[in-house]
Design a binder for these strands. Structure first.
Lengths: 147, 147
DNA sequence: TTGTTATTGCAATTAATTTGCAATAACAAT
DNA sequence: ATTGTTATTGCAAATTAATTGCAATAACAA
């Protein structure tokens, strides 16, 4: 499997755009952690590593990373968007505790059947989906029950 | 079944807050259309009906409407949040065309099984979920294929 | 090496949402 | 009904995420 950087270079070339060290740094940072992130957090992570890349460059890179299939938007929370790497990751759903914020990721095999069925019924060409659950994690559920 | 207004009054009383004609107008407008909405759209709909209610009041009412179980956030798009009435509505998923924006709603029975299975496996107390599909609707899919 | 122009960082802008404040009004107690 | 307390309102100002204009820089094709 080719690396995220290679995927990005191909995409950029195909579009007649230019690759830059800034964009490669952003991609490397995202794929060194393999977890969801938001712009501010990514900016701070890179700053910790002495990177001087501006937030504007991150904001400008994001649509390219999405278009090239490296990342996607996952949810809007705390007043801003959150993203996660998808290239090289299997599609997964989120189970999020509304009390402590804990997020568990898991793969739901049944979704493929649902998508097949729904595609046929609706005639939509379904390209992506989002399945997120919210509730109380075991610990927070106990704490709520005590009150 | 009691009306959305009654549900809201109960909630407001239980919290020691005060009900107002502004909030009742907002609720009536939302439940007269029974479809998803955003703040600006709701504000304009009410303005058309000669209502003088300010946007600030709508923004301040929304957390109360969510807490009382009348509406919920559905997605963040075009730079702002979208909501939909849930009281008296069966839980449904969205199928959205990424080209023309068309949204189809449907009920996915299989979700109940998935939730049961997942609750047992994770020990989470699952309270809500969101299942959204994106892709091309039949018309837009044809148009894209032609290019 | 050179020329074109995409990309950068910075600062200013935009747009959604929140908040401070003084006036108003809901509602419990009288 | 009247009154007092204080939640709610509308307005305008503030806040915050995200976008954009601009001049300087740098990618990359020729």
């Amino acid at each position: 499997m080719i690396s995220p950087l290679e995927v990005f270079r191909k995409y950029i070339n195909g579009k007649g755009l230019r690759n830059t060290p800034e964009r490669e740094t952003i991609i490397m940072e995202i794929f060194s952690v393999h977890d969801h992130f938001d712009v501010d957090e990514l900016f701070l992570r890179m700053k910790d590593q002495k990177s001087k890349i501006s937030k504007a460059s991150i904001y400008r890179a994001i649509p390219l990373l999405i278009e090239s299939g490296l990342i996607k938007e996952v949810f809007f929370e705390d007043g801003h968007l959150h993203y996660e790497p998808i290239y090289g990751h299997s599609h997964h759903c989120h189970l999020r505790c509304i009390r402590c914020g804990k997020v568990i990721e898991f793969v739901e095999e049944e979704m493929n059947n649902i998508i097949d069925r729904l595609s046929k019924k609706s005639n939509f060409n379904i390209l992506d989906h989002r399945l997120d659950f919210t509730g109380y994690c075991p610990e927070c559920n106990e704490k709520s029950a005590l009150k």
